[in-house]
Amino acid sequence: MDLTIVILIEILYAVASLALISVGLAVVFGMMKVINLAHGEFMMMGGYATITAVNLGINVFVAMLIIAPLVVGAIGLVVERLVIRHLYGRLVDTMLATWGLSLFFIGIATVIFGNTTTGISTPIPGLTVGDYQINGYNLFIVVVSVLLMVALYLVLGRTRLGLIARGTMQRPDMASSLGYSPERIYMATFFCGSALSGLAGAILAPLVGLVPTSGGAYIAKAFITVIAGGPSLIAGLVSSASVFGVIDQIFTFAMSPVIGEVALLIAAVVLLRLLPQGITARFFRGRM
């Protein structure tokens, strides 16, 4: 019984962390059709922003939930103005340019923070379920992910701002003739996407030892989750994160964490082959 609860929590955690890793990319790729291969590095910078802020004596939750998203969002804004702006509509070129950016950021982080592992301790103590000890922080991640999904759904689906953003992504010319500046909306959307990446990186930072190349661990997972999700942003994200999270955990429990990750990646390749347009192109069509 206890074991079942532990496994359930682990699966929930796996799903939640996948959704968290992918949400920033989902906004940037799903809405703007910009393939941001520097997404992992945005997360890495979110992690470093948190650790630096905590070392300066700032409360860890403030650092994670406020400072890191703002810092990474600002970096994203600079990147959008300098690079991405010139490449809208050129899918492959944005892919290449952001890959270049990712290498650039890895280089800079190495210069500033050195090629050593840094980290902070998890701010929430563990709790026991029967004979088992589980990490309380995992529950925190589940809660944050759920809140984030709900918030994103409300902002995009229920507010005027979300409506304008979605409309601009579909028809920039129409939005501009209605008096909105597509350029500004793109800028704002990219800021939000980067900030979400930074937030994800910050929240995951206490769980992993951070090195400048940490981003590489996230990028593939984030990509396959978003792409396998398909056209609907939130429904796609939740459904594909669920599929991959469950597969990952089953194989992790049955064999080993490495096999779990490999199984996840193989499942992604198979899924993309079967549903090349993503899960939500076939199921849950037309939802947000």
Partner: peptide, 13 residues
């Protein structure tokens, strides 16, 4: 790594 990244970005642009 930084220089390689910069070269790639500049060439694409």
């Amino acid at each position: 790594t930084m220089l390689m990244g910069l070269i790639l970005v500049l060439f694409v642009l």
